[in-house]
Amino acid sequence: MSAVPAGVAARPAPAAEDTGAGRAAELGPRARLWPSLAAVYRAQLSRARVARIPLLFVATFQSVGIMIMMRGVVSGGGEAEYVVSGASVVVVAYVALNLLSQYFGQLRFSGGLDHYATLPVPPAAVVLGAAAAYASFTVPGTMVTAVFGCLLFGLPLGNLWVLLAVVPLAGAALSGLGAACGLLAPRPELATLLGQLGMSAALLLGVLPPDRMPEAVRFARDLLPSTYGVEAYARTFGGSPNWAYVAGDMAVCAGVGVVSLAVATWAYRRAAVR
């Protein structure tokens, strides 16, 4: 019944020695930040093929649906710009905030973090690699949403390239928040809940034009990092956008991204050793 080869069993016991040798052995190499970040990023991207495609489709489908609904309410002009811009950024919020929060929540509670914690990899590499991958997952959906929205509302497509800056910056801010939520939530269901709530907030406060909102809601909107991504893209539809404001909005996203990713890295470190 034993599945162990005889040769393994019949072996002299090793010599007793060395337990108090005193001299510390040389440590194995540490994984450096950028190569390990690249390795985590690549591994996470490959997960999209196995696990993420249906959810990416949902993210895009949801945003397209919202725009079709809003078509009945909003006729065009400035309000339409916010709808298209908001719906595009919601894709980022759905994937980077909601799905990443769920992912880290599940990883932590299933014990999957042990795998990374017993490898000599910098915590920032794990968090940034996963965040970057999730931000990348949003690129196709965001583009499809923006193009569809522009065609639907008759808006120009010339400023689409702005999304190439908006997606990574808003992605950094939202995926940092998502990772922090997932790693700090005391239970996995709470991680899911926080991610969902964040996504709902980005949806409600991002897609609706701000002019119609009451003062308190507008204040809440200003607190949400995704708002600045929405603003940045919405500003560029006009004939001569104020690029200083656009840059300012993006700087807010970048700042929130740096802070939230730093918090997420700290949360990872805390979650890895209990």
């Binding site: 052995a25 440590l27 190499p29 299933s110 042990d114 795998h115 990374y116 490898l119 990899v121």
Partner: peptide, 14 residues
């Protein structure tokens, strides 16, 4: 520890 040992835990979710 991570630079001295390799660990095979019971979970494979990562």
């Amino acid at each position: 520890a991570a630079r001295i040992l390799a660990y095979l835990g019971q979970e494979s979710s990562a």
